[in-house]
Each structure stands twice: as structure tokens, then as C-alpha cells.
Design a protein around this nucleic acid. Structure first.
Length: 708
DNA sequence: AAAAAAT
């Protein structure tokens, strides 16, 4: 059926011959609000329910053609037809469709809708949902265009002295992350296999000299890289790598590359390329999201008559309809990891019960690198436990990835997760965009993400290529306002099934209950993490929580509670007056403020010689790390006042926070024993929590103080 | 102090 349709429409030369008319004119003058007709998206959605990759059907093709191509151009939907029309090189087609190679048959919407335009040489902004083949959409026609260039010599295929050099770059692809650049390159090499086209990468974190040597030796037609390294090698005349013949510039994840952080680099790279008024240059932009704010940048960067190919209706969300998105309120920040473990265990238990579910393979996203680390550490600690190993969780890989790891470790984690059958990847936003890990069943976002686009792209790591997947967002109640503002219109539904999400973790739990088992495992895993990691995690979350929470006061209380109850630490790190001011915390209760005499040392925090580590009260001989009762107001200023209160003076919220001693809930034993704090006094088993090994920070930090 | 990205 599809094939017949494709043939009916598949007239490539007609496509090439027809000039784009009204649509480009329209786009040039007004905000490009062109979009695929409604039938398209609804139909795609329906089809995807049947777990097929949303392809172009006959009906949609027709509708789309009319809408997008007033010139009645045709639409091709089968890769094999591209060969018949002699539009795309036979070798490329073979690489795509052969079962022992990429094994693809039918093109996706973006691929169909952009191919002819790209071959024609038009500038394009293409928007399509995550996991619908955007990479291939720009690779195939771009590689073809290079082959079409008579000045490109690929005649010496397979021989050592191919007549290409480091200045033969015809197309450049910029990616916002190193792993994505590498992934695109892998795909590009598959497509280009046997054509003689040379694909190279240039990303940071790798040996520059080795990379350069490779390009110098083998030459390069298509270069793929990240902004910093591309800038570096293209601006340095000594490298010999240059692009005087460049015809095509591709911005993958274009909205990201055009935003604040990247735009200057991208502009600088453009300035290193041949003057577009002298050598015609095609620019292609691809992304699942293009927020309004960047449209101006898009328009500035593309030619005035660029095409906006949008397969996502403007009133539609660029997520997949088939992906259930669940929202979970957590009682405190410390509940996230137990809830994550519970989610994984529940899933595995259902599998054990014979339900037809794929193995649990999840990405857990955090808003700070330090939090990814402590979470990965904690889960790795748990996974070492024999009870855990023998459970249905036993075969899970626990992996970590973020930009603070060495590139070697990053690459290893990504590779391992790709290969993993089941496991959890604890990730920062390095992997949020474009990464294609096969068979991810769950995306769990912990904390409201920094913006809507981030949410959408993270979610897009699951349910790719027609597969199923679930999205989860764990969020503190006090993030509601920012949630509504950023994600309010997305289709999340409240889920209250995870028991540990709402458990009061200041209690003691018995291993006889399922909740207790989970909580105690996490507690123990965290207890084995070192103190510095905990402090960094606290500090790392300061920025996002104070920004995300309904009030700064709530943010601090939640963080302090996470630190004491979740991490089993005594007193939260002191903050310098300067930092407090920057965070707007000056008049917030519950903050430990240092006296500002810190000396900077590695990583932005300083160790003040004599000041107690984390200013624990006990060893200083004063009243213990916590203020109790409502007598104390204000906060401590380091030690010079001799008092340590730190936080939570009574107050209506006090009792929730796990410290703030009323005595009724157990809370906190201060006193000289520094450390042991016993929660759950009301249950009568104080101090007997199953797993409370001596905290690592006692050893590693001694009496030193950390102020920030 | 909060992703990422050159050394």
C-alpha cells in the first residue's frame, strides 16, 4: 500500500525542477507559522499506537504535499525508491536498507519532507519529535550532496592515497555534546560506507593532536564536532584543517546551539568558514523544539527564504502521545531515591510475575552533576549488597554520566548503558538531547527541569523508533508554582502509587515492611557515600532549589532535611555571606552562615583551619548542631558567637524538617557523641536503625570546617 | 551555585 503510494508520488526530477514559490515568500515575510496539517499529526499519533514508527501514510502524504508543496511536488516514502529515482547513490541506499546493515525500509515524516529540499540546496529549519530519525534526515541528503560535487574526488575508494586532504571539508555538523557528535559520526559512517566519503570528528576531551593527525592523514569531507574543539582547530592555521570549500553547515539541536550559552561559539565558527556571499552555503537546523525566543536567531542565521518543515503542530506538544507521563510528589527531597528504587523494584516484580515487560532500563536525570554522582554512588553501594544482588534487581548496571567525569569515563558509561540489558543511568543533561540508547523503558526526572525544552528532550530518550516507554517526574510539593509555569500544559498525570515517595524518612523503618526495606537500603547506600560528596550535592542543589521552590525558605528547609535525614549528616554546610546574598537568602532562617573569612581552595569551597567540619556542634562543646525550641531566632554565623543553631527554629514547619527538636518525633540526639543521631524515638527503637555505619565524613573531615 | 563546552 505504501509502496504504491510512493510510486505514485515518487517523481524526484519533478521535485528538483520545481522551484519553491509562495511558501518561501510567505516564510520570508512573516513568522513562519507553517505547520503540517492536522490530519498529519493525529494520524501519526494513531498509527504509533500500533507501535509502528510514525510513517507517512498515503493520506498524510497527499495532504502534506498539498500543504507544503504548492508546486505539487511528490513525496517519497520508501528508501528503495530513492535509488530508483537516482536521487540517492546506490551504495547509500544499500547501506540503509540492507538487513545486515542499517535495515531500514520506510522513511519517516521528517526524512521524507526534508530530503528533496536539502538536495535542492535550500536552507531548512526542521522540527520533528524526538526519536523520529532527524539525524538520518540530514545525513543522507548531505552526504549525497557531497557526492554530487564534481570537485570531490572519491575515486580512490579503499586505497591508501585517496585524493582528499584536511581542507576538503564540504559539510560541518555542530552538536551541543561530545557524545552526540560521536553518535552522529557513527551513523554517518554507516551511511557513507563504501562511498569513499571521509567522516571525521572533532570534540573536546580527546587528544587534539591525535585527532588532527587522523584528519591530516585521511582527509575529511564531513566534519562533526562540538563548538569548543571546532573553534579551536578551525581557528588555528597550524592545524592545516580548514574548510575553504564548505557548502553545508548543520546545527543539530539547533535551538540549543543558538541559545545564550552556545551562540557566541557558533557565530565564531561561522566566521571561520568561507564568506557565504562568495561561496554559497546551505544551513540546516534540526530540533524537536524551537521555542519562540530563538526564532529570531534562526531567522538571522538562515537565508530569508528558508523552509520551516514542522511535523509538530503548533498547538501540540512535541512529546509522543503513547508515552505515559507521571507526576509524583515527594514529601522531601530525600524521598526521590527511595521512590526511584521502588519504581524499579515494582517493575521488576511485575516481570517476575510473568507480565510481558521489557527489562527495566532507565535514565534518571538530575539538575546538578553533584547530585548525579551521589545518587549513582548510593545505588552502586546498594548494588554491592548481597540481598540486592540476589533480588530481581541483581543484574542491573548502575552507571553515571556527567560533564565532570573524564571523557574516557563518560564514553565508557554511555557505551555500557547502550549495551546494558537492564540498569539505571544517573545522568545530568549531557545525555538529555539526541542520545539514542536502545530500549530505554523509563525516563525519571528528579526535580523540575530548568525549562520545558529540557523536559521534552529528556523524555525523548525513551519511546524511540516506535517503541514504548514511560516518563516520570519526581517533584517536591514546593516546586508546584514553577512546575505549573514550565510544564503546566504538558500531559502529566498525578501518580500516588509509590509509597516511599510520601514516607516520613525521619522515622525508623523496619525491614519487615516493603517500604522499610527500600528506605533502609537507600539509607545504607547513602551512608556509605563520603562526606565531601554529600556536601557537594547539597551545594549543587542550592542554586536550582532556591530557584525552583515556591519560597527560598522552603528550599533551604528541604535541603537541610535532605542533608540530615537523607544523608545522615549533622549540620548543613555553612554558606558565606556573599553566597547567601547571591542566592537571596540573607534573611532566610535556617541557613548556616559562615563569617566570610574563608580562603578559597579547590572547587570553590574552603577549609577554614579550626572551624569544625560542617560545624558540628558536639565537638565544639556548645549546644549541638541544632537549635531546638522556638527560643532561637535567626541563624548562626559560624562559630564566633559560640552558638550553632543553624536552622529551624520551631516554626510551623519545624516538625516536618526532621530536626527542630520538639522531642516528640525523635529527631535528633545532640550531645557529644557527634554523629549518631537517632530518629524514631517514638517507635521506641532509638538508635537501632538497621544500618547506620559510622559516617564517612567523620573520618575524612575531622574537625575541619567547610564554608561556602 | 545551578547543563554544556577548549586547555
Amino acid at each position: 500500500m505504501m509502496l504504491g503510494t510512493a510510486r505514485r508520488f515518487g517523481v524526484s526530477h519533478a521535485l528538483r525542477a520545481t522551484a519553491p514559490r509562495s511558501i518561501s515568500a510567505r516564510l520570508a515575510t512573516q513568522l513562519p507559522k507553517w505547520q503540517a496539517p492536522s490530519t498529519l499529526s493525529s494520524l501519526a499519533a494513531t498509527r504509533s499506537l500500533h507501535s509502528s514508527f510514525p510513517r507517512l501514510s498515503a493520506a498524510t502524504a497527499e495532504a502534506t504535499v498539498e500543504e507544503t508543496e504548492p508546486s505539487k511536488s511528490a513525496m517519497i516514502t520508501e528508501f528503495s525508491d530513492l535509488a530508483a529515482e537516482n536521487l540517492i547513490h546506490n551504495k547509500i541506499i544499500k547501506n540503509i536498507i540492507q538487513p545486515d546493515r542499517m535495515n531500514l525500509k520506510t522513511m519517516t515524516e521528517v526524512q521524507s519532507l526534508t530530503l528533496n529540499e536539502i538536495v535542492k540546496g535550500d536552507d531548512i529549519l526542521a522540527q520533528a519529535k524526538t526519536g523520529t530519525g532527524k539525524t538520518l534526515a540530514f545525513l543522507v541528503p548531505t552526504l549525497q550532496n557531497i557526492l554530487n560535487d564534481p570537485s570531490v574526488d572519491v575515486s580512490k575508494v579503499g586505497r591508501r592515497s585517496a585524493r582528499t586532504g584536511p581542507s576538503e571539508i564540504r559539510a560541518l555538523i555542530i552538536s551541543p555534546t561530545r557524545e552526540l557528535a560521536e553518535q552522529i559520526a557513527v551513523e554517518a559512517k554507516k551511511v557513507a560506507f563504501g562511498t569513499g566519503l571521509i567522516v571525521q570528528t572533532a570534540v573536546g576531551g580527546t587528544q587534539k593532536r591525535a585527532g588532527l593527525a587522523k584528519i591530516q592523514q585521511e582527509g575529511c569531507h564531513l566534519l562533526i564536532g562540538t563548538p569548543g574543539r571546532l573553534k579551536d582547530i578551525l581557528s588555528d592555521p597550524w592545524t592545516g584543517v580548514s574548510a575553504p570549500k564548505l557548502n553545508t553547515l548543520i546545527l543539530d539541536e539547533a535551538d540549543r546551539l543558538l541559545d545564550q550559552g552556545f551562540a557566541p561559539d557558533v557565530e565564531e565558527i561561522q566566521s571561520l568558514l568561507p564568506d557565504p556571499t562568495k561561496l554559497d552555503r546551505q544551513t540546516l537546523m534540526f530540533s524537536a523544539t524551537v521555542p519562540r525566543e530563538v526564532m529570531q536567531m534562526v531567522r538571522q542565521t538562515l537565508k530569508p527564504d528558508f523552509k520551516h518543515v514542522n511535523t509538530v503542530r503548533e498547538d501540540e506538544v512535541p512529546t509522543h502521545h503513547r508515552v505515559p507521563q507521571k507526576l509524583v510528589y515527594t514529601r522531601g527531597l530525600e524521598n526521590s531515591l527511595p521512590a526511584l528504587l521502588e519504581l524499579a523494584q515494582n517493575w521488576q516484580a511485575r516481570r517476575d510475575n510473568g507480565e510481558d515487560l521489557r527489562p527495566f532500563k532507565a535514565i534518571a536525570y538530575f539538575n546538578s552533576t553533584a547530585e548525579t554522582k551521589i545518587s549513582a554512588d548510593a545505588f552502586n553501594n546498594m548494588a554491592r549488597n548481597s540481598q540486592f544482588r540476589q533480588s530481581s534487581m541483581g543484574n542491573m548496571r548502575m552507571l553515571e554520566i556527567n560533564s565532570r567525569l573524564t571523557q574516557a569515563l563518560r564514553t565508557r558509561s554511555a557505551d555500557n548503558f547502550r549495551k546494558a540489558r537492564e540498569g539505571i543511568l544517573f545522568s545530568s543533561d549531557v545525555t538529555a538531547r539526541g542520545m539514542d540508547f536502545p530500549d530505554v523503558t523509563h525516563v525519571v526526572q528528579i526535580g523540575v527541569p530548568r525549562d520545558r525544552e529540557t523536559y521534552i528532550h529528556r523524555l525523548g530518550r525513551t519511546a524511540r523508533a516506535g517503541k514504548e516507554g514511560e516518563g516520570w517526574l519526581f517533584m517536591h510539593r514546593a516546586e508546584q508554582d514553577v512546575y505549573r509555569k514550565r510544564l503546566g500544559r504538558l500531559p502529566l498525570t498525578l501518580d500516588t502509587a509509590l509509597e516511599t515517595a510520601d514516607a516520613d524518612l525521619s522515622q525508623t523503618f523496619s525491614n519487615d515492611t516493603s517500604v522499610g526495606k527500600i528506605v533502609n537500603q537507600v539509607t545504607e547506600g547513602l551512608a556509605q557515600c563520603d562526606g565531601a560528596t554529600k556536601v557537594k550535592s547539597y551545594m549543587g542543589q542550592l542554586g536550582t532549589t532556591t530557584g525552583n521552590f515556591d519560597s527560598k525558605r522552603e528550599a533551604i528547609q528541604a535541603l537541610n532535611q535532605m542533608f540530615t535525614v537523607g544523608y545522615n549528616m549533622q549540620t548543613p554546610p555553612e554558606l558565606s555571606p556573599r553566597l547567601m546574598q547571591q542566592l537571596g537568602l540573607n534573611r532566610i532562617d535556617g541557613v548556616s552562615m559562615g563569617d566570610g573569612t574563608r580562603q578559597r581552595r579547590d572547587g570553590g569551597f574552603s577549609r577554614g583551619g579550626s572551624r569544625g567540619g560542617f560545624s558540628r556542634g558536639g565537638d565544639r562543646g556548645d549546644r549541638g548542631g541544632f537549635s531546638r525550641g522556638s527560643d532561637r531566632s535567626g541563624f548562626s554565623r559560624g562559630g564566633e558567637r559560640g552558638e550553632r543553631s543553624g536552622f529551624s527554629r520551631g516554626g510551623e514547619r519545624g516538625e516536618r524538617s526532621g530536626f527542630s527538636r520538639g522531642g516528640d518525633r525523635g529527631g535528633f540526639s545532640r550531645g557529644g557523641d557527634r554523629g549518631s543521631f537517632t530518629r524514631g524515638g517514638d517507635r521506641g527503637d532509638r538508635g537501632d536503625r538497621p544500618s547506620r555505619p559510622r559516617r564517612a565524613f567523620d573520618e575524612s573531615f575531622g574537625n575541619d570546617s567547610f564554608r561556602f
